[in-house]
Amino acid sequence: MEQSGCTIRLPVFEGPFDLLFHLITRAEVDIWLVSIAEITDQYLDYLQSMRELNLDLASEFLVMAATLLRLKSKMLLPLPSREEEEEEELFAFSSPEELFSRLEEYRSFKAVAEQLKAKEADQQKIFLRSTSGKKVLVSDRRQQSYYTLWGGVQALQEIMQRHREQAAAISSAPYLPSEKYSLREKIGLVLRRLRHREGPVTFRALIAENGELIYTFIALLELVRRQKIALFQDRLFGTILIYAGRKREENGNGSNKSESAN
């Protein structure tokens, strides 16, 4: 791992149950045979390593740690049973059995969630008839967007290269130019650019012409807010197309589909 460009991906846990469940599965033991002491230690170890990696810990993870410790200490020191005080916590277990039954319940829902995920994937392969503009005929995708990793990297390199050139130009200048761009100017530029063209402009082209990534971006956000332009992206990380006016608006909202089939 000497290379600094390498990132390690840790599994993401959907909460403490998920983590506990993962630990138990890893130990390859039945949920009901896990010793509370052992699982508590593993759980704490994991939290420790997360902290060493500077990961944010959601409070639930810590509450679970406290709960586990309490269960463990209870087993070590059998107390005469006292009335449990009112608890309003997320995890109010009085015995390891209770915890494990909850874990098991969680596991069954997790299994179903997996099946739903498969169904979701199946459904997304079925195209339904829709006149509300949900489907857009794409004139030529290949030309408009880069799908491949390389395409994306290349585009990024182009932009970064431009930035380097600009940075070099600035640093060699005797003084720093003050306020080279203003938002107002940038907005004007974008609008003029759109007026001169029939079709959409890609975000990439806009950056390539105007330079200055951040201001252009802020200008776009501002224009969208004022509904002077519409942004359209046919897929995640695809090319961002910029349209004048709100012509493309109907494409923008898939979630508001028809309300019910009553």
Binding site: E120, A121, Q124, F127, V136, R141, R235, N251, G254
Partner: peptide, 8 residues
Amino acid sequence: FADDTTGK
């Protein structure tokens, strides 16, 4: 066709 599904 581009389908603007709201993602998974």
